[in-house]
Design a protein around this nucleic acid. Structure first.
Lengths: 137, 137
DNA sequence: CGCTGATTTGACAACGGTTCTCATTGCGGA
DNA sequence: TCCGCAATGAGAACCGTTGTCAAATCAGCG
């Protein structure tokens, strides 16, 4: 029972537009940014709709969601269906997907060590990408 | 330049009460919960004050802050000054502090691999503690 | 020990992101 | 083509958090 990819949602114009906007950006974007992007494209989509679809997509695992330090939710379409993490640039927002068996194993290990079961984890790495490193200080 | 433990804030009754409430709980608590705790104890402290102190304390590294899935900030006084992570129980909220050189090294490695510098990371592990595992399903 | 100026506090308004409401719209099957 | 139901849109409602500003407090000093 891990197949909640049960997307029997109706394909609509706005749904496609959102997915498309997401697909075109290599960075994590907030619901509001996506809404603005679409508006800029001339595609009028209600803000509530953007939120609804984004939620549905993340529930279906079509997009990744992470929270910025100030609690805002940001989304990004993921390249693979597999479990992975991100390395995000604090300067430009560039996000690279990475997999890491090492962390997965570590998480399982420490959790088990303390008697925990049904383990999940959140791992996000951020820094300055090569370009931003060069540009700053 | 990593010593921002420059706490020349004035010690007040409410500040102490907040630190105390935090020290007494082994779980992560939200600002509002702490506010309620104090109120329950008969200690009247303004909500804004709770937020302000919590922020100041986390800035000074006296407490750990993490974001719940729905974006709420939760705090916990940390046992050590050292860099560490948590394994949190989804059932009862119990939080155990763990250190993990393995993750630290992994984070550095994958980041470097993609040309990132000034790397930081967030790692939180959650599951069901021994008790909750036994109790559920 | 009381005074003085600066830091904190507290009540409440303001904010910003997200969710809810509900009438309207538009897809998909019959 | 028609119907029924899911999806949409506009705006209000929510909720955690932050800002405002006058009143309360504290530290140092005379």
């Amino acid at each position: 029972m891990t197949e909640q990819t049960r997307t029997d949602r109706r394909p609509t114009r706005q749904r496609a537009a959102i997915a498309d906007a997401l697909a075109r950006s290599p960075e994590f974007r907030s619901a509001q940014e996506i809404h603005a992007d679409l508006a800029g494209d001339g595609t009028r989509v209600g803000l509530a709709t953007v939120y609804r679809n984004l939620q549905a997509m993340s529930a279906d695992g079509e997009v990744d969601v992470i929270r910025t330090a100030d609690g805002e939710a940001v989304y990004r379409s993921c390249a693979t269906d597999d479990h992975h993490h991100h390395v995000v640039c604090r300067g430009c927002g560039l996000a690279v997907e990475v997999t890491g068996d090492a962390v997965e194993r570590w998480a399982e290990a420490v959790a088990a060590e303390h008697g925990f079961t049904h383990v999940r984890h959140t791992v996000e790495v951020d820094g300055l990408c090569a370009q931003c490193s060069a540009g700053s200080v």
